[in-house]
């Protein structure tokens, strides 16, 4: 009885209040994206209109998107980002999965020491590592190439490896022991038994890593300084800082922001369960 009276606030039920808050919040969450999309279709003058707050453009200026591709080699930037994705992710994932297999199912000497060592590395801020790396890559003539962004990933991803180790805890060791007694080689055990079993974990991590590389800004902005060598994100940032002031610039920049967000949105709609799962799992175990 008591809770019933508590739930009525001035004649409006508690439930209604919650719905109003949730819907208002939904509006706030979605507004910047809506504003971005409509601005990308406005003329420069409309976008900088200081008298009214008009959401819709007078006429949809799809030419802004054409202008974007003409002003900067945007598709080339997307291609470079994709080149990093398709070299780093397959190799890096395989390396991480093999290492996780070794850590959790093989007789690895000094297991805990090696694991702690690798994990301790993730505590160090990137800012404390980037200066010598920058000088070395610079000396190796890799400045303004994709190598500094590809090479480190080929050695695996410790966070991903740790995630796999956690996942492998749920898989009985007897399965591997039995295969060993049958005389199966370690690589065969890995590819035929382990790989199919950790496929769900791999899928989650690959989607996550793909998003991470797609959105990566700091590293690429250090190594790639001109439009012809840049990946997507630093190109977008450079575009916004260089032509940001001009009247024609704003809708074009928003067009760039739309194009850069679209693939992630599609990926998210398809795999939202993975994203949600991944944050819940890494969050509570970390």
């Amino acid at each position: 009885m008591r809770t019933e009276t508590m739930r009525k606030v001035g004649g409006i039920s508690f439930k209604t209040v919650v719905y109003i808050i949730l819907i208002a919040l939904s509006f706030i969450m979605i507004f910047p994206y809506v504003w971005m999309i409509f601005t990308s279709l406005k003329t420069g003058l409309e976008a900088m209109d200081t008298t009214t707050l008009k959401l819709f453009p007078e006429k949809a200026m799809w030419i802004n998107y054409q202008d974007l591709f003409k002003a900067v080699p945007f598709l080339k930037g997307v291609g470079k980002t994709m080149l990093i994705e398709i070299t780093v992710i397959p190799i890096g994932t395989l390396v991480s999965a093999l290492a996780a297999f070794s850590f959790s199912k093989l007789r690895l000497p000094f297991k805990n020491f090696f694991l702690l060592l690798l994990l301790s590395g993730t505590m160090i801020p990137y800012a404390a590592l980037m200066l010598p790396q920058f000088r070395v890559f610079y000396a190796l003539h890799m400045y303004n190439t994709l190598w500094p962004l590809i090479l480190p990933g080929l050695f695996g991803n410790v966070i991903m490896m740790f995630f796999f180790i956690q996942y492998l805890k749920g898989i009985p060791t007897e399965l591997i022991e039995a295969a060993k007694i049958d005389g199966a080689g370690y690589l065969r055990i890995f590819f035929q038994i382990m790989f199919p079993l950790i496929m769900p974990a791999i899928a989650v991590q690959v989607v996550f890593w793909f998003t991470g590389i797609w959105n990566d800004f700091f590293g690429p902005s250090i190594y790639l300084t001109n439009f012809n060598t840049q990946t997507l994100q630093p190109m977008l940032a450079k575009l916004s800082s260089e032509v940001g002031g001009g009247v024609v610039g704003l809708p074009r920049i928003m067009a760039g922001a739309v194009v850069s967000s679209l693939p992630i949105l599609v990926l998210y709609l398809f795999f939202q369960k993975y994203f949600v799962e991944s944050i819940a799992i890494t969050g509570l175990k970390g």
Binding site: W35, M36, F217, A257
Partner: peptide, 23 residues
């Protein structure tokens, strides 16, 4: 609501900063 509220968290920092700078 869950799907909607979480989307900004996976959006690229550059695009988000560009939109909010404009706002």
């Amino acid at each position: 609501f869950r799907v909607l509220f979480y989307f900004p968290a996976i959006s690229g920092a550059v695009a988000i900063n560009i939109i909010w700078r404009y706002i």
